[in-house]
């Protein structure tokens, strides 16, 4: 094979080469261009973009935690239920006069406890993560409905609504929460000992154990992180909805997993990044936003997300050289 390295490449071929190497980035950019064109520029308006980000902050936060679980060759299917559980705890405690600090603390602890339980079932009980977190989802959803016998809780105090409706410097607080969680995730994965261990354990658990890494502990921490992210998402979502709902976030778990997968994290574990996940969430957000702007039949949204999953994962696998 002859490679002509000497010929100067045109800017376009260079751009094409970069895009060819980053399938999700190309999907993202193509979508952005299409969105802008089809919506006659409305898509790019700050109001629209801001709205879109506020709407998807919850899923974005969950997806950051989900990335850890999937990097470790697992998955967390309990996030959506944990969101509902935290939502009910927040709303219930808040409306029964516990102020806002205690509800937040208890909510976050509940999220962490769910993650810890899932993690223990996976590591100590040797239950496949799919099954363990599916069972956890059932349990968390059950407890969420039990609190008020499945009635939604309204009338949250104003301070609690800040997370979903307030802004700082014109930017919605949930977007800032998302950004901070994402930055923290990036920091953990790329700058800390723990992050290094996540990639090694996810890549080959036996090898990691024989290199002195306590794989169980790494996994346990990841499921706790995932649970805490779900709890944070629960706070943001509850605040935006202005209610505690036992049946909220029924489909959010799928979107959280989809964000990670579209973002190029391998389901086999050991490969992927938070930045990819963020692009993944943005792709899903843009798709839905575009369809809303275009007044396209909303029913095909799920189908389009499904198609994007298939498309990006296939492209990723081609890139990774998997047949």
């Amino acid at each position: 094979m002859e490679v002509s390295t000497d010929t100067p490449k045109s800017i376009w071929s260079q751009i094409l080469a970069i895009l060819g190497k980053n399938p999700r980035l190309s999907v993202f950019l193509i979508l952005a261009v299409i969105s802008t064109a089809l919506s006659k520029g409305i898509f790019l308006s700050p109001a629209n973009l801001h709205n879109m980000l506020r709407q998807y902050a919850g899923i974005g936060i969950m997806a950051v935690g989900q990335t850890f679980a999937i990097l470790l060759a697992g998955v967390d299917l309990s996030q959506g239920s944990v969101v509902a559980l935290v939502s009910m705890i927040l709303a219930y405690l808040n409306t029964s006069g516990c102020g806002i600090v205690w509800p937040l603390v208890v909510g976050l602890c509940a999220g962490a406890a769910c993650g810890l339980t899932s993690g223990l079932i996976v590591t100590r009980g040797k239950v496949p993560p799919f099954i363990a977190t599916l069972a956890m989802a059932s349990i968390a959803r059950g407890i969420a409905t039990l609190i008020t016998q499945a009635r939604p809780v309204y009338g949250l105090s104003k301070e609690l609504l800040v997370f979903g409706r307030g802004t700082v410097g014109g930017i919605g607080i949930q977007i800032l929460v998302w950004a901070n969680v994402a930055l923290l995730g990036v920091f953990l994965l790329t700058r800390t000992v723990y992050g290094r261990e996540v990639y090694i354990v996810g890549g080959n658990e036996r090898s990691a154990n024989l290199s002195g890494i306590n794989a169980h502990r790494v996994k346990l921490a990841a499921y706790i992180l995932s649970g805490v992210c779900a709890a944070l998402a629960g706070i943001v979502i509850t605040s935006k909805l202005d209610m505690g709902g036992p049946y909220i976030s029924l489909t959010d778990n799928v979107q959280s997993v989809a964000s990670v997968v579209i973002g190029g994290t391998s389901f086999a574990g050991g490969r992927g990044s938070i930045s990819g996940t963020i692009v993944g969430t943005l792709i899903i957000a843009m798709m839905n936003n575009l369809m809303n702007l275009m007044l396209i039949n909303p029913y095909i949204q799920q189908g389009i997300i499904g198609a994007i999953i298939l498309l990006t994962v296939t492209m990723n696998q081609r890139k990774a050289g998997v047949r």
């Binding site: 799928v254 997993v257 989809a258 799920q302 189908g303 389009i304 499904g306 994962v313 296939t314 696998q317």
Partner: peptide
């Protein structure tokens, strides 16, 4: 495609629902 079946059927789940 040799895609993991979880991911693949997660995709078709959405498509069939639509």
């Amino acid at each position: 495609t040799a895609m993991p079946s979880f991911v693949l059927t997660l995709g078709t789940m959405g498509i069939v629902r639509s």
